[in-house]
Design a protein around this nucleic acid. Structure first.
Lengths: 116, 116
DNA sequence: CGTAAATATTTACACTCATCTATGTCTTAA
DNA sequence: TTAAGACATAGATGAGTGTAAATATTTACG
């Protein structure tokens, strides 16, 4: 049994910023999610994946969109995956990433939500 | 005449992540906003200010909530203010901060919004 | 098997950042 | 004018981060 919270559970834990003050541990759970998003390359990666047809994109689709080395893109994808913002599925030689829209929605509710 | 975009305008520029792919310059405009939020202390500061009675809080209210030095809190408040997430107003000896709920709402719409 | 292609890992490095201590500025009051 | 309190700035330091080069891993296909 796993006592760790998934990132989605972590961010779904709390009332919005404008509601109750966040506890220290809640904030420490949520900050890594925002940190993962808080990079121009990773923002574009999320956007490219989320808006790609079929809701998914393989790394080969993503590498070309940046003026960065392939390992660097791979590194950013790993961070987004570790944060729970991207799902990873290997099909043959290719790896497909899919956006966790539920995690994004929870995060959005936390940031912009109104207390009832 | 000022050609710089305010942070709120910056984040209000774009369709949500799941809509059109973000351009490089859009992503570079938005990432600093997320970066400002992507710290446990700053998340709690935003939450404390936003949920404080009257929608504002003075630094004296905030310092006590953390086990950090006063200059460190001041530093974080400066970052949030520079990002456009907090308004600053000096009244007498005290400085009051107020959350830019419009900026938070725009950010939330960008992250979690659906492309109609 | 051997080769090529797609993606990940490792290592190294420059750079940024969170924090502290010390000090400065500004405001109010005595 | 002096003193005290609230908040900001400056400088220093140790930890973290984005990037590239080199290398490894995995899969498909002759």
């Amino acid at each position: 049994m796993n006592l760790e919270l998934t990132p989605v559970q972590t961010v779904a834990c709390c009332s919005p910023l404008s509601g109750e003050p966040l506890s220290a541990s809640e904030a420490e759970g949520i900050a890594p999610l925002l940190k993962a998003l808080a990079d121009p390359v990773r923002l574009r990666l999320m956007s490219l994946v989320a808006s790609h047809e079929g809701g998914e994109a393989c790394v080969c689709d993503l590498n070309g969109a940046f003026d960065l080395s392939q390992p660097t893109i791979s590194h950013h994808l790993k961070i987004l995956h570790a944060a729970g913002l991207l799902e990873r599925e290997k099909r043959g030689v290719w790896v497909y990433y899919r956006a966790r829209t539920d995690a994004l929605a929870s995060l959005a509710a936390l940031i912009g939500g109104h207390s009832k």
